[in-house]
């Protein structure tokens, strides 16, 4: 059964609707909580096992030892594919995915991000190990 102008009513209705598009970048877009954006490194939790370096599909992470139990991480944001496998791999939850996604740069050098090791107070290691242990079982199950 052929009816001419089947879409006319829909087209006329759409004339009076708000645009479906968002005026980005004037309107900020909030990504969902589970979004895998730029990776954050929490140096105090890192134990230097380098499993994240082994699992990274693009070799975008470099973990280096800078002192006694102190590690710094270097991310190549231009190599990273934002799969967040490193976040899943890390046994101590030293890596976290953020919702940050506006990562374009004009200079390539700016895409190298270094998270320096924090100066560690002497009592800290035990407390961190404890907090990591309490938060871990949920992920391991």
């Amino acid at each position: 059964m052929i009816k001419p102008g089947k879409m006319v009513r829909e087209v006329l209705k759409s004339l009076f609707l708000k645009p479906a598009t968002i005026l980005y970048p004037y309107v900020h877009v909030q990504m969902p909580d589970r979004f895998r954006g730029k990776i954050k490194f929490i140096s105090s939790r890192c134990i230097g096992c380098k499993l994240c370096m082994r699992d990274c599909p693009t070799n975008a992470i470099t973990i280096t030892k800078v002192g006694d139990k102190q590690f710094q991480a270097e991310f190549d944001l231009d190599k990273c594919v934002y799969c967040a496998q490193c976040v899943d791999t890390c046994p101590k939850k030293a890596l976290e995915a953020t919702v940050e996604f506006e990562l374009a740069q004009l200079k390539r050098g700016k895409l190298k991000v270094t998270f320096h090791a924090e100066p560690m107070p002497s009592a800290a290691p035990a407390a961190i190990a404890e907090s990591a242990a309490t938060s871990h079982p949920a992920a391991g199950a």
């Binding site: 589970r34 979004f35 895998r36 799969c83 967040a84 496998q85 995915a97």
Partner: peptide, 12 residues
């Protein structure tokens, strides 16, 4: 898909 998996295209 983005809300369920964390990305719009490569869901991972």
């Amino acid at each position: 898909l983005a809300a369920l998996t964390g990305n719009r295209v490569n869901y991972g």
